[in-house]
Design a protein around this nucleic acid. Structure first.
Lengths: 214, 214
DNA sequence: GATAAAATGTGATTGATGTAACATTAACTG
DNA sequence: CAGTTAATGTTACATCAATCACATTTTATC
């Protein structure tokens, strides 16, 4: 499995849920192809790799597809996350309602500033960072979103990993890297979202339209 | 040029600026390799492709590198962006100060809600969406950040493109695709950031640690 | 029932990209 | 001044994913 493929799977999954909501029962590769923005051959090949089979000329059964994909995507497990750093972006994420359809719940926030974590107006409880271990154990959390300032991002990530966090979505502008672990152990899964970098890439592509392929 | 390569270039560029700030004048491939998280061979190969040459055993001159990379990245052009949709995330981005080092400026916000665009407490002027054409012409803007709700994202993108926006950074959960254009024309450059999708990927990778390569 | 059409499923090919090995050049050292 | 070391620069290779073409199977139609 490739990370591009994982993204496609997720798109299939969403499209399928929409289609089921409309009342459809069967789906063809070219339907999903439209929804996911890829060719129909890719859809079939993905399913082929995943050992998901349809009926020739009959397409795929939506319910069966959804079941298999949701097992594959690990749906059903509790997907709790915390937000570390309750500045503007952190607060926005704590209020964000777009996670619900995916079964993801923001269950707590953390901040080092007493003014912030004593404020009771947050949509979820906010704790001082020092209580991190206790809280993530109580709430069964393994994934954190980092929205702290650049200067404290590396330290924060370190603290989180020590406390038992296994996955990090990092919005700070420095690129966090998983530290090397012993053979057989799994490193922390880190995704970095760098907004400024994305904008830079857009500006670049506008200036040199033919420079990028893909 | 590849989009992965572009990301690497940008990382080199940042690392170089930090190194220059410290007072260094020369840099070796393995220094940048550490900073960008790639192997030294990749750094040399990238520079080789870009026709950037160093001195054997002497490394590369930082100033020269920065000059060439900044020309390559299109620095120096005004990099003005607007934020369309001034909810929590939109507001957070209007306040965000992390763009400055990269020469990116948020110059205006847009919203359809009169309560929002009449509020004077924003860090940049906020206009009704209907004034989009007029404003982007006056401010020389070609790139927009979309932070509107899912339901209005597609329409908003359509309006922006009609108004002359050429690049979009989309935070809404639907994946925007550039519409096909005539031969010779350049399609709108669109980057989609889907936070829920990123989290889903992290959860997946945690559940199946060996499933993903890359 | 024969034929055509419409879909899946897969094997082969292509293309691109990262990796590594090696050749090359410059500087340092005794 | 010779030898060694430390860096660049390039070539060749291996890997991986996307694409295409085509075989296969099922259904529809006359």
């Amino acid at each position: 499995m490739n990370s591009d493929m994982l993204i496609r799977i997720t798109r299939y999954y969403r499209a399928l849920n929409r289609l089921r909501a409309i009342g459809l029962e069967k789906v063809f590769a070219h339907n999903l192809s439209d929804a996911a923005g890829v060719s129909a051959a890719v859809v079939r090949k993905d399913f082929s790799i995943l050992a998901i089979h349809g009926q020739k000329r009959g397409g795929y059964e939506i319910t069966e597809l959804i079941d298999k994909l949701s097992a594959l995507l690990g749906k059903g497990e509790p997907q709790n996350v915390i937000v570390v750093g309750c500045g503007r972006i952190g607060k926005a994420l704590m209020h964000y309602s777009g996670f619900e359809p995916d079964g993801i719940r923001v269950v707590a926030g953390f901040d080092t500033d007493p003014i912030v974590y004593s404020d009771a107006s947050h949509p979820v409880p906010v704790y001082p960072l020092s209580r991190i271990e206790e809280v993530i154990e109580a709430l069964d959390v393994r994934v954190a979103i980092i929205t702290v300032p650049e200067a404290s991002a590396a330290d924060t990530a370190e603290k989180l990993m020590e406390a038992g966090i296994r996955g990090i979505l990092n919005f700070s502008p420095i690129t966090l890297k998983p530290r090397p672990v012993a053979e057989g152990e799994n490193p922390c899964v880190i995704h970095n979202i760098n907004i400024a970098l994305e904008l830079e890439q857009i500006f670049y592509q506008l200036q040199f339209p033919d420079a990028i392929k893909g």
